[in-house]
Amino acid sequence: VEESEHKSVAFDVYRDQVDSYWVRTSEMAFTTVEFIGFTILHYNQLRAEMDDPTDWKSVRQGLNWLVGNPGWLRKLGKSYLAYYKRDFHPSKRDSAHLRQQGLEKLARLMKRPQLLS
């Protein structure tokens, strides 16, 4: 919630100091590949410690959750690809509804202080 109030600050500083489309997009692409690589590495480490590492049903379920219809990455797709547009700016994406959802969730949690401790 708090971060949504200044979601464009880091991007604006980047544009003021660097302002390179190539640097911005190549770093995002590199980070994406790196993230996927580490995710696969850690997933394999976890599978090796499973009671039944041949349980391919869990692999299918995980892949479906990630890239199925509607998988987490599929839902993220448009927003992710928007970052690669030359005229991208975080303020162009209205996230007021997400902020409101966060405030409502925070209000519910505040009514149950035992969950916060």
Rank of each mutant, 00 (worst) to 15 (best):
D55G: 01
K7Y: 10
W65G: 01
N44Y: 09
E3H: 06
V23Q: 07
L76K: 12
N64D: 11
R99E: 05
E104T: 06
W22A: 15
T25R: 10
G102S: 09
M110V: 08
E3N: 09
R47W: 03
L66I: 09
T31M: 12
L109G: 00
K7Q: 10
Y83N: 05
M50V: 03
L98T: 04
R47N: 11
L106I: 05
R60V: 02
T31L: 12
S8Q: 12
K111R: 14
F38R: 15
D55V: 02
K85S: 13
G102Q: 03
W72D: 09
P90C: 05
V1G: 12
R47G: 02
R112Y: 09
V59W: 08
A107N: 08
R74L: 08
A82C: 02
H97F: 12
L81V: 05
Q101I: 02
G77R: 13
D55A: 11
D52K: 03
R99N: 06
L109D: 11
W56N: 04
D52W: 00
F11T: 01
L66V: 04
L76W: 15
L109A: 11
P53G: 06
S91M: 04
F11K: 09
F35V: 03
S26R: 12
N64E: 12
W65P: 00
K111G: 07
L46E: 09
S95I: 08
S4V: 00
N44I: 07
Y43P: 02
E34W: 14
R15K: 15
G71R: 03
E2P: 00
W56L: 12
Q17V: 10
A82D: 13
R112G: 01
R99A: 05
L46A: 14
T39M: 14
K85N: 14
E5A: 07
D12Y: 05
R99T: 09
L98W: 13
A29P: 01
R24Q: 07
S117T: 07
I36G: 08
L115K: 07
P70Y: 03
V23P: 03
S8W: 05
D12M: 06
W72K: 04
A29D: 06
L63I: 05
K105M: 05
H6I: 01
R112P: 00
D16A: 14
S20P: 10
A10F: 14
I36A: 14
Q100A: 13
V59Q: 07
P53K: 03
A48T: 03
K105R: 10
V67M: 09
P90F: 01
F30C: 10
Y21A: 05
E2C: 02
M50L: 09
L41V: 07
F38D: 13
D52A: 06
A82P: 01
K57V: 07
V13L: 11
S26D: 06
T54K: 12
P113Y: 07
P53T: 04
I40R: 02
R108C: 08
D19Q: 12
F88D: 01
T25D: 02
H89N: 11
P53L: 00
I36K: 06
P70D: 13
W72S: 06
W22S: 09
D12V: 04
I36C: 13
M110C: 11
P53Y: 04
L81I: 02
